[in-house]
Design a protein around this nucleic acid. Structure first.
Lengths: 340, 340
DNA sequence: AAAAAAATCGCAAACGTTTGCGTATTTAAA
DNA sequence: TTTAAATACGCAAACGTTTGCGATTTTTTT
């Protein structure tokens, strides 16, 4: 009883045609209630499990959705995944998950693997290295339903889900200003990323509104190596004209800043205030506790999944129109931006 | 050019039989180098992508591995996933990922979905609610290769990967004792879990070795609701005969303890020391920084994947023998267990 | 130069489903 | 009672691969 029983064998056992059994199990109107009962009970008795590949081959769909994220060790993406799984699982869909580790080459390879429709649809957040998007347009041209979240790809005319990046960054730096910061730095990963562009805009506009001149060297873009980031942030903090406030566009860089601060004699929030985009659950337990801009990650995941499910179950009635849906973040003020 | 080209169409384009094209693409010795070149270049030109379901149907394997974890928002499991993906991806395998959210009913449902061999193999860590394992034995009887890590299921005779739970717990409580703790509590999730059994043994033996009598009420098993846990831990800390040291068997409960402590006038490590099993990356940034027993999560994931890949690529030469492979954890002492 | 061996390719079946269509039986309408 | 319609089921094709086996051509051996 290793490999289970097939539809044919089940049919033979019942002295019925495979087609009849298939229809019975799929609750077709062409089959009498009596035989339906028989079939179903026999199927249960023999623990019949339909072969998913035969079905996928025949129906040209796999009830599978692929998710591509830039990193896994990050609460934000983990929460988004939970949101996606919550609604896809409800509809019997499976999840193929891939992490690019912020590597665009790996992203290309993964995307290439998905061209054969192993998954019915894709939801993704692009890597920080991604600037050329030809591999993504190829997917789109293959008519593979694809949607983006967080780090979106504006070149592809599809639906995207993001948080209010501009507004949140604006409010975040405004908060720093209100707390007395005069020289505010902005930490970012790649400047190609949609989120850094938007968040940087918000940062600049907030400075502008307050009449603060943006210092070019304060818009600092970091790399993927934590040690290097700690080094360069340390250097920034030890410089003559050091910032007294920081808006970090990603959690990783706020953590790096915490480490960097420990290499100086500065103290948060006395000498330096910091607020960051982050979904870290232990932000309130850090020393000092960290003010955060928290994305509605679970909701983003849920909404992505809902839309995709709708697209896959009612293809005629739903389009993945080219629009960006914004779900606002929540700002939580903690010790790291207090006035002392 | 929506759905791509099939092998037949590619063959027609080349005036060759599908079988020839198939063999050419699979680099068969039966095909001349000349036609191989032709076929490959035409395949590339037309961007031929083999249908994975046809292949899976025919070959009865999908190059897919399913991973079942109890929760996603947890660095340990995320790191294990990264380890698994690193080696599976290298061998062209795909990953179906499922989270049970510590819910055994969800676990049963997922396991049931996998009976049809949608995945070639399974690697899992059981939910904390899991005591009846009939759904897992059913998988095993179906001859579905399955291995466990961390929270293992001893009833299934297969290979398991764990850390040195007993030894680490022993060393952890021994450390607490050396730091002066006399009344040490042990926080756990379900007592059914393999990891709580082993870690609890280590805890008890360490107490025993030091001549400390184990207080029954100090072996506290918590639930899945964080608020409730904070409440009960708070109560424990406010009780007459409160502990002065805590060994937490999972990260979640250490975090709950940090929250609970803030509801009292106790201070860590002055009044209470704590060490926990945890792979949290920001343990060193907490207030106070948290002493941890860190599992080799990435390695565990890699080893799981290596073994499974070996089993799937050389089925005759490898057995998933009933053994438990132990990879030691690393203890990092931080402020939360300092003597003051 | 004839026979044997090797190289190269095509035919057709098989994997396990679903579904259009045809057919036989039963029920309802005339 | 005859005819029409509805019900219930089976046949066979199709999805896109891989592969055993046979057939033809080319090369090697004797």
């Amino acid at each position: 009883m290793s490999n289970g029983i097939s539809l044919k064998e089940l049919a033979a056992e019942l002295n019925l045609a495979p087609s009849t059994v298939s229809r019975a199990l799929n609750d077709s109107y062409e089959i009498s209630e009596a035989t339906k009962k028989k079939v179903v009970s026999m199927a249960e008795k023999l623990n019949y499990q339909p072969n998913p590949f035969a079905r996928s081959l025949r129906e040209n769909k796999s009830k599978t959705i692929a998710v591509i994220i830039p990193e896994r060790i990050n609460n934000f993406f983990a929460q988004v995944m939970d949101g996606i799984e919550e609604v896809t699982h409800e509809h019997g869909f499976h999840l193929l998950v891939y992490s690019t580790h912020e590597d665009v080459e790996k992203e290309k390879k993964i995307v290439s693997l998905l061209q054969n429709r192993r998954a019915d649809a894709i939801v993704m957040s692009v890597s920080s290295q991604t600037s050329d998007v030809s591999h993504l347009t190829k997917l789109y041209e293959r008519e593979l339903p694809i949607i983006f979240f967080d780090r979106i790809c504006s070149e592809i005319p599809t639906t995207k889900f993001i948080t209010n990046d501009y507004e949140s960054a604006f409010q975040g730096t405004k908060h720093l200003i209100q707390q007395g910061c005069k020289k505010i730095a902005f930490l970012m990963l790649s400047k190609e990323l949609s989120i850094t562009k938007e968040r940087h805009r918000g940062y600049l506009d907030a400075l502008n509104e307050a009449g603060l001149a943006p210092e070019p060297t304060f818009s600092m873009h970091c790399c993927l190596n934590e040690e290097e980031n700690i080094q360069s942030i340390t250097q920034l903090l030890k410089s003559q004209n050091r910032p007294d406030g920081i808006l970090s566009s990603v959690e990783k860089l706020a953590i790096a800043t915490y480490h960097a601060v420990r290499k100086t004699d500065l103290r948060i929030p006395d000498d330096l205030k910091i607020i960051t985009f982050s979904n870290m659950s232990s932000a309130g337990l850090l020393s000092p506790s960290l003010s955060t801009i928290t994305q509605p990650a679970l909701t983003i995941g849920q909404e992505c999944a809902k839309l995709l499910i709708k697209k896959l179950t009612k293809p005629k009635h739903t389009d993945l129109i080219d629009q960006t849906i914004v779900i606002p973040s929540q700002i939580t003020i903690r010790e790291s931006t207090l006035v002392r």
